[in-house]
Nucleic acid binder design. Structure first.
Lengths: 195, 195
DNA sequence: TGCATTTGTCAACGACCGTTGGCATATGGC
DNA sequence: GCCATATGCCAACGGTCGTTGACAAATGCA
């Protein structure tokens, strides 16, 4: 084998663990306090390491944020499910993404900083264009899939804002069933409803 | 008259004008770049004045922000209108607030900073509790007026995020009529719909 | 005109920030 | 055990920030 310098899937070399610790601390803090509200010194303290190491492993704060702010919504294929259950399917996946154990804080990181950080805003628009819109386009006229996906996103981002970032008490108090029953029909109409 | 030290409603004394200039510059910048993204030096430059004056007129950056972030939604009295037009009335008022000439950038200031500034977040929750919720409570069972107002807010804050802050292209492209026709029914159901 | 008050400028402070380079220590192959 | 390398700490840099106090100019009343 003449190529050993790239893609070594084994080797949990000491540094990989610190690298992961830094990234985990960064994701936690970025999700909770946003880009400007999180300093490299904060991240370093949370990872029990020197601030200089954060720069050594990730070249800059911007690059660290870019690594932390990766989002893969893994939206279900809507075409294969009952057409009347599209809204419910979307809102159920939304709750998994935000409250499920598997999904990371990626969306929280982006949403927390998108209002004051242009990179985060652009990344969030990318998520919309590359992950939400295409899925809606499989079940709606592609000509207005953008419009429909935009409406869906407005409801879902607003719900996330109120429930997870702003923590508006009545919205926090909603049960999963209440959310599904109330928001599901909205998404259904936005995604595949008349007009 | 023995009391002259308080409440002089006349007198547009030179200082009142600079004070207003500073506040206007602050509102503009806070609305566009958020609390952390706006420095006192930026505000001073926009008002063509020395940074020290900003502190002299408003005692601190926090106090300046508090003065800039006043919001009065002036929501219409829903009880006196056609019960079937409540959703449409709400979304029309929403568009006036965000795009009308009279309303200031108050909501943009709050929403822009609410994700990373606890004071702005609390202020936004206050707007919900003192302005949105009471209006919904006049047309819905007061027992779940909070829930209904929360759902309404989730849709409206989400729409504002996507259209005015994040500037998601398909949402920016929506005409007023499209917004009214699509979001109006959602608000109608959230505010006074079944269940 | 003289003078007290207002209105404004300027320089600097301490704090925190991202980032850098030098130096100590630990690790792992020979 | 030797030594190159990886890993980590420390001190400091240049910069921006909110804020302060001293001082200058303008204003307005006597």
């Amino acid at each position: 084998m003449a190529f050993m310098t790239e893609n070594q899937p084994k080797k949990p070399s000491k540094s990989d663990r610190t690298r992961a610790q830094i990234l985990e601390a960064a994701r936690l803090l970025f999700a909770e306090h946003g880009y400007e509200g999180t300093s490299i010194r904060d991240v370093a303290a949370h990872a029990s390491i020197d601030p200089a190491m954060v720069i050594r492993y990730f070249r800059s704060k911007d690059e660290l944020f870019a690594r932390a702010a990766v989002v893969d919504l893994q939206l279900p294929a809507l075409r294969v499910i009952d057409r009347n259950a599209i809204g419910e399917t979307l809102i159920r996946r939304f709750l998994e993404i935000w409250e499920g154990p598997a999904s990371g804080p990626g969306m929280a990181i982006l949403l927390r900083s998108a209002t004051s950080n242009e990179f985060a805003a652009e990344k969030l628009r990318d998520v919309f264009g590359n992950q939400v819109r295409p899925v809606i386009a499989t079940v709606a006229d592609p000509a207005d899939a953008g419009r429909r996906a935009g409406l869906v996103s407005s409801q879902l981002l607003g719900l996330a804002m109120c429930r997870y970032l702003l923590r508006l008490p009545p919205v926090v108090a909603l049960s999963h069933d209440e959310i599904i029953q109330n928001v599901g029909p909205t998404l259904q109409r936005y995604a595949v409803g008349e007009a």
